[in-house]
Structures are given as structure tokens and as C-alpha cells.
Simulated assay, not measured.
Amino acid sequence: MRILLTGASGGIGQVIANSLANDGHHLILVARSQEKLNALAQSLPGEHLVVALDLSPSTAGSDLAQQLTEQQFLPDVVINNAGSNQLKTFEKSSWAQIESQIRLNLLAPMAVVHSLLPTLKSGAHIINIGSVLGEIGYPGYVAYGAAKGGLKRFSEALGREIRDRNIAVSYLAPRATDTPLNSPAAVALNQALGNKVDSPQVVADAVRLLLKKPKANMVLGFPESLFTRINALLPSAVDGAVKKQLTLIKAYAEESL
């Protein structure tokens, strides 16, 4: 299959790319750095297309679709993996930082799907990679959680809307994952709270599983997957648990300033 992967040069993206290439798929690798993408493509088995593109601008989706059309290399699968996060309280975040979080984590994947959707055929698959923080609102990640929560609802609604076209839409929610995207303060907070942190390979394996057996929603890790259910049914119970952590969370968020 031809699989488009955004955020391909990041910590999770590189591992996903390696796993999919080793499975024999042809990849469309999308990220900002041409140099990093070229190095990644050369390290993978098989032949792959590299597209250096900043997904932040509002024209990114249409620009990507135009390039793929010109290359005659349209995907069967779209994996929206590009994203960013920042441990920082909402009040201390600048509006530019908040807007950037929303744009890259929510609007960019929506733009990519919107532009490529007319080209997708029956049997295609869209996988949007979110976060457990899109399932549970968490201090220090207000804008990020809002964006990933929006991505989940986008995935759910779109999946229902295009079901009659036989196109699957999946939302994958990893828990904390060990990547360079995490600031030292975020790493220290996870350690202080005793949070389990997965390797990027765990996310890559989940992507491969979704490709074989599509499902609308997948949350990785325990007890995180349990907490998401509790938060949906009895949010006051999660309120109490998070309240006990609040002083610690804010202390490490201040270190990120």
C-alpha cells in the first residue's frame, strides 16, 4: 500500500516509518526538513517519496495534495502523526503558543484529510494519532488536550460521515511516549508522578495493528485506558486524583518557562 505519514522525521514518526517500510509498504514521508527526510528515506528498505512541507500554514493541505497529484503518488492510507506539545500552564502560555498548538495538532490533520479525501478510494484508511490527554483534560497541557480532544471528535464524526464510502477512520491515543519532543521538565514530571512511558515502537505496533484490523478508537496503556473510561462516566473521580497532583504539575510547568 501507499501510506502517507506526517511528522515522519520525529521520534515516533521514524519508528512508524521503519516498521511500515519493513512490512513492504511504499511511504510518502512528510515533515519540514528535507535533509532529515532524505536521510530517513535512504535508511529504509524500498522506494519512498519525500515531501518537505510545513503543515502549519492554512494552505498546507492543498499544497500537499497538489504535489502528490503532480507526482501521481496518491495514498491509500493517511497517517496524521505530526504534532507538538508543551508543558506549560494556560495562563503563562502566550496566545501565539496556544494557537500554534491548535493549528498543528488539530487544524493541520483536518486540512490534510480535507484535501486528500476526494482522492481516497473504497478500502482507504485514515489514522489520526492523538493522545490520552485528548481523553482526559490535564493541567499543564490545556491547549494540547483541547486540540487532541478535537481530533478525536473529528475522527469520530468523519468516520460516521464517510462510512458509506467504505473508508475507515481511526483515532489512536498513546500515553506518555519517550521522544525528543518531551521537554526535560515533562520527563521529570512523568518520573515524579510515576507515569509509565512507552517506547515509540509501542505506537508503531499499534498503527500496524490498526492497519490490519481497523477500529474507530484505541487507547494505549494501562491504567490510562481505564482512566479514560472513568473520566467519561465519572469525571469527579478523576478530578480528585488530579487535584492531588496539581501542586507538583504546576511546579514542573514553571520549570518549562
Rank of each mutant, 00 (worst) to 15 (best):
R2K: 15
I3C: 09
L4D: 05
A8I: 06
G10Y: 05
G10W: 05
I12A: 04
I12R: 04
G13A: 10
I16Q: 06
I16T: 06
I16E: 07
N18D: 15
S19C: 12
L20E: 05
L20V: 09
A21K: 12
A21L: 12
N22S: 14
N22P: 08
D23Q: 15
I28C: 06
I28V: 15
L29R: 00
L29A: 10
L29M: 02
A31C: 06
R32C: 03
S33Y: 00
Q34L: 15
K36D: 05
N38F: 10
A39S: 13
S43I: 11
L44C: 13
G46R: 07
L49F: 11
L49Q: 13
V50R: 05
A52T: 09
P57Y: 07
S58E: 12
S58G: 10
T59Q: 14
T59R: 11
S62N: 13
D63Q: 12
D63E: 12
L64Q: 05
A65G: 02
Q67C: 04
L68W: 02
L68D: 04
L68Q: 03
T69L: 14
E70T: 14
Q71R: 14
F73M: 13
L74F: 01
L74Y: 02
V77K: 00
N80M: 07
N81Q: 11
L87F: 07
K88C: 09
T89Y: 08
S94H: 08
E99S: 05
Q101P: 04
I102F: 07
L104M: 12
N105H: 02
A108H: 00
P109V: 06
P109I: 02
P109D: 05
M110I: 13
V112L: 07
H114V: 06
P118N: 06
T119V: 09
G123T: 10
A124M: 07
I126F: 05
I126Q: 04
I127Y: 08
I129A: 05
I129F: 00
G130A: 09
G134M: 01
G137S: 10
Y144K: 07
A146Q: 02
A147D: 03
F154L: 01
F154N: 03
A157C: 14
R160M: 12
E161V: 05
R163N: 13
D164A: 15
I167C: 01
S170Q: 02
Y171E: 01
P174D: 01
P174M: 03
R175S: 12
N182M: 02
P184L: 01
P184M: 01
A185C: 11
A186I: 06
A186T: 14
A188K: 09
L189K: 08
L193M: 09
K196F: 11
D198K: 10
D198F: 10
Q201H: 15
V202H: 14
V203M: 12
V203S: 09
A204V: 13
D205E: 15
A206Y: 05
L209V: 10
L211H: 00
L211T: 04
L211G: 03
K212Y: 03
K213P: 00
M218A: 11
E224G: 08
T228E: 10
A232Q: 11
L233A: 15
V238A: 03
A241I: 09
Q245P: 02
L246E: 10
L248R: 13
A251Y: 13
A251F: 12
A253I: 02
L257A: 13
L257Y: 14
